[in-house]
């Protein structure tokens, strides 16, 4: 029965057994992940196609340069590398959980599963912060020959090319009152919006230092849709992975697998979790690195 069977030449394909020596559930999980790779692949390739069709694209190092609690400090790639490490580590803890399952070590499975769940929740928290930061961000852009303040949404993108100072000065003259209030407000935190709104246009314009404004044109609109769409779809996978892991944790604590005599379910949940990590590797590449 045991490993000696591998030594003798087995004809795997003759029927009556699995040609790959795996039970059907694991096989189905593998092929499901393969097809899910095509779902993600299609998303990322669509993103690439649209990106190739544009003359300019948002520079990731400019878009993703914030860190929680660091204010306006320019820290490109810092936060996303934290997120990446969280996922890698949670993948490692999942490997250990699966391995503990192989040894029928219930306590080990529970310990490592719990850590994996913590990692997953931490990642989701990071993503929520990042989305919130991007959506509520205030960036001064040149729009229809006047200035405006916008965040990164699915409909507008503030990450176009830099505008030269002369054009900014010109556009400033056409900028309506409420936009001026927002521009000044984003740089002068000592005054409330009500106080600023009471000021006249020329007073507001006097408070603006065009050199520190970093005015950009609006960028390619598709960027936001793809970013939120793809990271959202990935986040949905992380979320469902966390749910699956919680279910596994409850089942383990109720001795379901001990009674069955094997922890194959943990193995399949593990495959799913690693896949989530794998997808992130590519999302990280496509959105943050290149």
């Amino acid at each position: 029965m045991a490993t000696t069977a591998a030594a003798t030449k087995t004809n795997w394909w003759n029927g009556g057994k699995s040609p790959f020596n795996v039970e059907y559930g694991k096989l189905m999980m593998w092929y499901f992940l393969m097809s899910d790779a095509f779902t993600f692949g299609a998303f990322l390739i669509s993103y690439g196609t649209i990106r190739f069709s544009q003359n300019v694209w948002a520079d990731p190092n400019v878009v993703f340069n914030a860190f929680p609690g660091a204010g306006h400090t320019n820290l490109p790639l810092a936060f996303v590398s934290v997120m990446t490490f969280i996922l890698i580590i949670s993948s490692v803890t999942m490997v250990l959980a699966v391995h503990a399952g192989h040894n029928n070590d219930k306590k080990g499975v529970m310990k490592w599963l719990a850590w994996t769940i913590v990692g997953g929740l931490a990642f989701l928290g990071c993503q929520a912060w990042e989305w919130h930061h991007l959506i509520t961000g205030e960036h001064v852009v040149l729009m229809d020959n006047h200035l405006d303040v916008i965040g990164q949404t699915t409909r507008v993108n503030p990450w176009g090319q830099m505008v030269n100072p002369a054009t900014v000065m010109n556009a400033l003259q056409n900028t309506p009152h409420d936009a001026l209030v927002k521009i000044v407000g984003s740089h002068h935190h000592e005054m409330t919006e009500v106080q600023l709104a009471a000021l006249s246009d020329s007073q507001l314009k006097g408070m603006i230092d065009t050199a520190e404004l970093h005015v950009r044109e609006t960028g390619p609109v598709a960027f936001g849709g793809f970013f939120y769409g793809i990271t959202g779809f990935h986040g949905f996978h992380v979320f469902s992975g966390v749910i699956i892991n919680i279910i596994m944790l409850v089942m383990t604590s109720k001795d379901v697998f001990t009674n069955k005599g094997h922890y194959l379910m943990i193995e399949k949940a593990g495959l799913y979790w690693h896949f989530v990590d794998l997808v992130w590797v590519f999302v990280f590449l496509c959105f943050y690195l290149i």
């Binding site: 490993t3 057994k17 020596n21």
Partner: peptide, 21 residues
């Protein structure tokens, strides 16, 4: 060996050494 037969589809089981793993 004491580990039980998980499924009729599986012919033998891998066993990975703990330290090596």
């Amino acid at each position: 060996m004491e580990h039980q037969n998980i499924s009729s589809e599986i012919t033998y089981q891998h066993h990975i050494e703990d330290t090596e793993f």
